[in-house]
Nucleic acid binder design. Structure first.
Length: 263
DNA sequence: GAAAATGTTGGAAG
DNA sequence: CCTTCCAACATTTT
């Protein structure tokens, strides 16, 4: 595809679209690149950019939706080659935003976990300055970009860290383990085309397969794959949280004896 | 049939 | 700065 541009944007659900410009994109807004930053899909244009956030149930198709799913289409981008990108969104939390400058609009985001500059050392520096608990921090996009509820739970499980542990209280060993877990998890999930819990689809219109690899997410009450304890559920920062009380002790190091400290 | 839970984020309020 | 609650919305599960 060469010299593609956005010809027109049709908005079916007004709240799903916003623009920093007085008008919607004009004909000839050439598309330069397509990339991801955190949970945003970024379409850089010759002038400005289009940001897409899928939130909970957003999905994109280049295929025209069937009549019965048309009611969930909130925005459609019509390209110069006469193809159309359909933004479906059952819960209507997703957003499409036309901005002047993508970097400015996304300037609040924390580092990319997969960037080479995101080292364990850098992670340690970032954590040391923080007061809160580790799980809400992992979900905080201004702290680190791109981690959602599933990967936060999985990363903490993989690293053997209780979700309520104070962020600044992690040992350097735990930080290294968590850093590794986050990066491995995201890489593996991308390799498996993502995690489809309900209706997520990737660019080829297919479901992801990483859900088959999840160890704790969605498995409350089932057994821990590692130690066979019953996985427990907590609500932390309004988000359901699944963890293994044995492998992720609230005190002590992962895998260590809970008998440290007192007595 | 009502209540709670679901992958997210931003805003308000303490 | 940090945490908590809520709102946006539709569907499924309890």
């Amino acid at each position: 595809m060469k010299e593609a541009s956005i010809r027109e944007i049709t908005v079916f659900w007004e709240k799903a679209f916003s623009s920093e410009l007085p008008d919607r994109p004009r004909p000839g807004s050439q598309i330069l690149t397509l990339r991801r930053r955190g949970k945003y899909i970024v379409m850089d244009l010759a002038e400005g950019a289009v940001l897409i956030h899928l939130r909970m149930t957003g999905r994109l198709t280049l295929q025209e939706p069937a009549v019965e799913e048309k009611k969930y289409v909130t925005v459609a981008l019509h390209f110069s080659d006469h193809r159309t990108l359909w933004f479906h969104d059952m819960r209507k939390f997703g957003r499409v935003c036309w901005v002047r400058n993508a970097n400015t609009a996304l300037g609040h985001l924390g580092p990319e976990p997969l960037a080479s500059t995101f080292t364990a050392r850098k992670f340690a520096e970032m954590l040391g300055e923080r007061r809160g608990r580790i799980k809400p921090l992992l979900l905080n996009q201004t702290f680190l970009a791109g981690i959602g509820n599933i990967y936060a739970d999985e990363a903490l499980y993989m690293a053997g860290i209780h979700p309520l542990r104070p962020a600044s209280g992690l040992s350097s060993r735990e930080i290294r383990t968590l850093h590794r877990a986050i990066r491995k998890l995201l890489r593996d999930s991308i390799r498996h085309q993502g995690t489809t819990v309900l209706n997520f689809i990737h660019g080829d219109n297919e479901r992801g397969s990483f859900q088959a690899k999840l160890q704790v997410y969605g498995r409350v009450g089932k057994t821990c794959p590692r130690c066979k304890s019953i996985l427990e559920r907590l609500v932390i920062a309004q988000r359901g949280t699944c963890f293994c009380p044995q492998c992720q002790p609230i005190s002590g190091i992962a895998g260590g004896e809970p008998s440290s400290g007192i007595a």
